[in-house]
Design a protein around this nucleic acid. Structure first.
Lengths: 140, 140
DNA sequence: TTTAATTCGGACTATATACTCCGATTATGA
DNA sequence: TCATAATCGGAGTATATAGTCCGAATTAAA
């Protein structure tokens, strides 16, 4: 079960953090990434492909091809990635799932939840991909 | 798509908040609840049935039967309900889904996330079902 | 120019969650 | 005692997400 973000989003974050770490090595194959992150090659491959479409990472086919970051990791926040993949429903939708809940007509929990929601959004917005290098030896 | 809790959990919270509001009316039928909350009768029924097993609410069969709270709404926190239905994975698991991430060997995001996780847990723990009455006229 | 390594893309399967259906059971009250 | 109104419980369907498979296209280097 996913905690907060979709599995696809989790894998994307893992993949990007990994690519940022290995940035100096140029293209890295899906095979290599899958092995290091202990994820199925086909699945991380699919996930990374969609990130290519989103312009977050680059890919190169053929021999010695692979994936690499498309943007400066300094200008890439975790929030950027989350918004692209999962959208902003995590930060907007009602916690109780009430369809009619909104800022104007808040459900019982809405106002209590607001500050926490804002804090997490800000944290993710202010945390860039670059901040995490090097991460080798950590939970990977 | 669910935001934070499972759909079952969302419906359970809605149902319990609703029952707390209508507490003085005694048994309320699944039919009635479904209509007021705009949820399928069969589904809210199933959800409430499992809450009966968990001892959170009571049920009575037969004519003029229905559901009612089993405990004092003052002593029922939102966290109680969430833990029973979704477990505590929301508060424990790694945000990035890394299986090896833990307090001892935290992933890059782990420590940044900690305070927010704690704040939300505390909020849910300190918010009782009783605090929300009456909620008629709000987002229901 | 050929071979090997790689992404790409489409179609497929698996699984968990969400949701429905309906008959059996139970209780009330006329 | 009978009709009615309700939960109970089990089995089924629907849908979204997760994950796999494999062949085609592409590229680098031998």
């Amino acid at each position: 079960m996913t905690v907060l973000f979709s599995r696809k989003c989790e894998y994307a974050l893992q993949g990007i953090l990994y690519l940022a770490e290995k940035q100096y090595m140029g293209n890295i194959s899906a095979e290599q990434i899958a092995t290091d992150l202990n994820i199925s090659r086909d699945f991380i491959s699919k996930t990374l492909q969609s990130l290519v479409k989103d312009g977050i990472i680059q890919s190169h086919r053929g021999k010695s091809g692979g994936f690499s970051l498309a943007r400066d990791p300094d200008s890439m926040s975790l929030l950027d990635i989350i918004l692209i993949i999962d959208g902003n429903s995590v930060f907007e939708s009602c916690v109780l799932g009430l369809p009619t809940c909104s800022t104007e007509s808040p459900c019982p929990v809405h106002n209590k939840w607001g500050p926490i929601r804002e804090a997490s959004r800000k944290m993710l917005e202010n945390t860039t991909v670059a901040q995490f290098q090097p991460i080798t030896g950590s939970a990977y």
